[in-house]
Design a protein around this nucleic acid. Sequence first.
DNA 1: ATGAAAGCGCTAACAG
DNA 2: CTGTTAGCGCTTTCAT
Lengths: 357, 357
Amino acid sequence: MARRRQSVTIKHVAADAGVSLQTVSRVINNEANVRPQMKERVQASIDKLGYIPSIAAQRMSGSRSYLILALNDRERTIEDWRSRQGSDWVDQMLYGGMLKCAEYGYRLIFELVDTHNDHVERELQAAIAALQPDGVILTPPHSDNPLITGVLREHNIPFAQIGSEGAGGGIPLIMGDEGAAHLATNHLVRLGHKKIGFITGSAEYLLSKWREDGWRGAMDNAGLPTDGLCAEGNFTFKSGLEAARKLLDQPARPTAIIASNDQMALAVLKVAKELGLGVPADLSIISFDNTPATRFAQPPITAIDQPIAATSSRAVELIISAKRGEDLPDAPTVIPAELIERDSTGPAADRSAANSN
Amino acid sequence: MARRRQSVTIKHVAADAGVSLQTVSRVINNEANVRPQMKERVQASIDKLGYIPSIAAQRMSGSRSYLILALNDRERTIEDWRSRQGSDWVDQMLYGGMLKCAEYGYRLIFELVDTHNDHVERELQAAIAALQPDGVILTPPHSDNPLITGVLREHNIPFAQIGSEGAGGGIPLIMGDEGAAHLATNHLVRLGHKKIGFITGSAEYLLSKWREDGWRGAMDNAGLPTDGLCAEGNFTFKSGLEAARKLLDQPARPTAIIASNDQMALAVLKVAKELGLGVPADLSIISFDNTPATRFAQPPITAIDQPIAATSSRAVELIISAKRGEDLPDAPTVIPAELIERDSTGPAADRSAANSN
DNA sequence: ATGAAAGCGCTAACAG
DNA sequence: CTGTTAGCGCTTTCAT
């Protein structure tokens, strides 16, 4: 394969504009100390020749690679891709992250790492050495991994921690999980529900606790008890099945259930059907995440939308700000989640009959 | 932001192993002309120091960037991301492409370009200049765009053309669309269907024609007429609605419909419900693509799976082969599509009543 | 405000 | 087989 050289380099531009390399470089990087007139002349040559700086060369000498690394969990991501259950987490990350990167002339590189593995550190070191990214976006359940945050701090690379409150020294962004759980719970309370069950996510994810806390808090505020209404899940359909059975197989069963993600909500729906419960007539369901599956369910499921695209977009902005030495917010950035009403929620059924059990 | 230098470079390794830079380089690149003993010694130093070559530096001097660019249509991709209808095309591309890249030490960079735009050429030139990719994967509807293939040839960059027969000089890969349409049609014929309708995709995509040809061919083989059974669509739900109404609003309506993608099949399902037709009792439906939406439909839709992951994986292999100067297949690589049977297909209804119209 | 020189980490080309 | 030399395209000093 022939050796490919840059077709038009900074040298060509310099020659064409009759200035030094340095001046061209200054114009490219929008630095001070260039007379407007000079700048214009150089820019004209750049446009004329169609010059684009090589990021490899920029990275070699300077400190910028214009690359931002988005780190995701390998196991979970591959399983999502393989199973094709319609989780669009990756798409939404790219949607927000790539487009925002493009605005600033950056590129997002999507990278997978092993969580349950001592290699994380080595994998990350390798990615950093190979790519020299200008910033890294950490996603759950890696966001607070001290091995990862340690390496990043050591290399002095700005990083965003999505779903983290910022332990580790990065830029924390959260999607308002606790508030969202309030939203969901209150919505059900307003519909007249008194017994509102909750299925937790895996404890490995901080947001699992936030969501549970939000539900408990809202129940408290409404003066409603939570005893026997919380079942453990781990985000899988299977765990949702078990949790749903546990909640619904009791005499005084809940009239509504909030599931910590869509797959588990789908499982609740299935168990409801098995038990002959109408949704929403006998049981209301709300889920977290709002992946496409919620739209296609029968009935479509009311869900808390996880604003992944907005969050990764903001993460990119903050990383670039940090890179520029600009001030960052003191508190974690919160991207609020919204409740998307669909057909799986309705007024609480009159439970006098059922309660007579 | 502090200037980040490579922490351990080829120099450190060379010093540690007591050899020249060049020898280390040879070991890294697995070149010939290194004594096994020497190689071992160098490798030991590499492992000891945790050395990883900088791709920026490799790209600067050598001819490899270890980057492969996957080009996708901006408009369509963003619309998919925005609408969240569960198309997992991007995910499947990444699934196949990224993992295969990782096997070879490459990285896949996902890039969006405008189709309907003279900028394509400039956009591509910019991406090439900035990234210097070792290869490019073209996806429909760009695969045969002469502006794109021209630029790529000019730069001598190997490229795969997914969904193309190879006009343009790249490496063609097709997903057996015509054969798949046969598969779908024959499946329906075996179920006793005689009037099998077809909804085309947008003419912008070559595969639209292949799918239609496959249907026509299979109908011919079965001695079945196709008059009035073909309706035009353009892959959108809306166009599917119109096409379905056209096909089903006639007296001698088809007992089965093949839609050129899932969204249009969903539309057929909707129209069937409006008309009070049972699926599959009164109407069988088969779709192309097999995105997650097909699983969630009521009933789940029998679909031709588009093997995107396998295809992009193979595309990466072929690009790397080409890069190495290895021989490539003469004919387009065909990744055969499979029929996934679900509940939207069944035996043809007895149409004596309907036919009496 | 601009230019000249030095070097980033690596590999191609050539010696030996 | 191994080492030496000369850049790749760009940005950082440091002059002017």
